[in-house]
Design a binder for these strands. Structure first.
Lengths: 260, 260
DNA sequence: GCAAAAGTGTTTAAACTACACCCATGC
DNA sequence: GCATGGGTGTAGTTTAAACACTTTTGC
């Protein structure tokens, strides 16, 4: 063990959910959009940054796994259970917190849309549109930007969009998720081909009745193909949700800025 | 600050360099290969894992930046100065170290080939072929595997290969780096087109004389185009070396296993 | 039958691969 | 001149985008 004092370890999480995109009061929010990305923030009840909005998180207990601590603090503060959880980055700049050195291992999570609707909301917990946040505590604005970038690049080559949906879903629903995340229209025909050709979908044979038009088929994701080479994926990334959609792709760029 | 005890913070680095690929004594090493990936390891002088080989690193001082600590411990133990340094992942499993909870923020680094040749080597520092390592201390084998995977995916869409070379270089040299990292032959003609079309190279006008054949031209990398959106890349990734070679790509998979 | 979304087919362009071929130098 | 790697040209294949068209339901 070390002979000199070290920094304090914290764990925080950026949680994303899709909700009806009413730009309620937020300038610049797309009014007619169907779904947009939202995330829950908690109001700080202590200094520093008292009363500011911040990412849910907490100190890391000595006997708890990193991902477990992320899931726990997330549940305790917002009542949410993530369907997808992955380590994002570790922020440890000296100036992050005005009160001593804090190193934050940050995770990002996706929760199902229907669960997000039931999430605890109160004086100290509120949902915000991911693209129009107020100034947050510490360097949390930068962290959210990075998480957003990661989500948007990752939907294109993995099947994490699944985490926003239930067990079965229509191709239109899956496409809506992609469109909401990427903020652009996607050709339904080409999307269908791409996603079916990936071999990750299975036709359940069932359809959704009651629509004012042709009933769409329901699909399900294939179980983990285990085609991913063992010992070749980081801990929390190694789930079925990370099977490549198109081709195994690499990691891009990003640069937060401030501390916390 | 927290009321309960937290884990201890450490910083480690996986350092890669290209060296002549003599499979000296290592079974399975490609004998005729020109260049292969090597990395320096340090022998542990303390329990746990006394006398085992491990990644260079150390405890994080309270008043030092994460990346700075990585570069410092790297310099102190191996005498190397990295030309590229980026955060890899934070490993914090409960069982990583037999003596208390240790959370390691791991970086990966690239050093120039000529500098690697001058690196300090002794009883407690030795170079190993990256693909044929002995059992290392803690979970360091898994960490190296992850770093290797990250390097190999990232050379294909960024220009980090640059970090293995000097200021100017021939296309053949750049291609050799790619071939060594990816472990496969690359068509010289197509490689030339791809890399010149990316717009990241500048013809210096000079050539290398003294070769027993047509003298190759020398190239240089363009300065940072600043085309990368601000506040959209993680701290250490936001260098000129991460400008997309082909297209901005995302992040794949990997999964270490054991602790350390 | 009509509107609307599901689902199929075709056309075009761009990107990548393979490989034939010419160029410039030292010996 | 001749061997060798530097450098250019080009045809074949694959991938993806754009868009016209057919199908199936509720009303």
């Amino acid at each position: 063990m070390p002979t000199t004092a070290s920094a304090t370890l914290a764990v925080s999480t950026v949680i994303f959910a899709l909700r009806p995109g009413t730009g309620a009061g937020i300038t610049g929010a797309p009014e007619g959009a169907l779904m947009t990305l939202w995330l829950p923030l908690v109001r700080r009840t202590r200094e520093p940054y008292l009363d500011s909005w911040a990412l849910p998180g907490g100190w890391l207990p000595e006997d708890e796994e990193l991902a477990t601590a992320a899931a726990r603090t997330l549940r305790e503060t917002t009542g949410l259970t993530p369907k997808y959880l992955e380590q994002l980055y570790t922020f440890g700049d000296l100036g992050r917190s005005p009160e001593g050195r804090v190193v934050s291992v940050v995770y990002w999570a996706l929760v199902q849309s229907d669960e997000a609707a039931l999430a605890a909301v109160g004086e100290n917990v509120r949902w915000f549109p991911a693209d129009h946040l107020p100034p947050l505590a510490f360097d949390h604005n930068s962290i959210v930007d990075y998480a957003l970038w990661r989500l948007r690049t990752k939907v294109e080559y993995s099947r994490i969009a699944h985490a926003f949906l239930g067990e079965t879903f229509t191709l239109a629903q899956l496409r809506e998720v992609h469109e909401a995340v990427l903020q652009r229209a996607i050709d339904p025909a080409n999307f269908r081909r791409t996603v079916t050709a990936s071999g990750t979908l299975v036709d359940t044979g069932e359809s959704v009745a009651g629509t004012p038009h042709r009933p769409p088929r329901l699909y399900r994701y294939t179980v983990t193909p285990d085609t991913v080479p063992p010992n070749t994926v980081p801990p929390d990334t190694a789930s079925a949700d990370t099977v490549p959609l198109r081709s195994p792709i690499p990691e891009p760029h990003f640069t937060p800025g401030a501390p916390a």
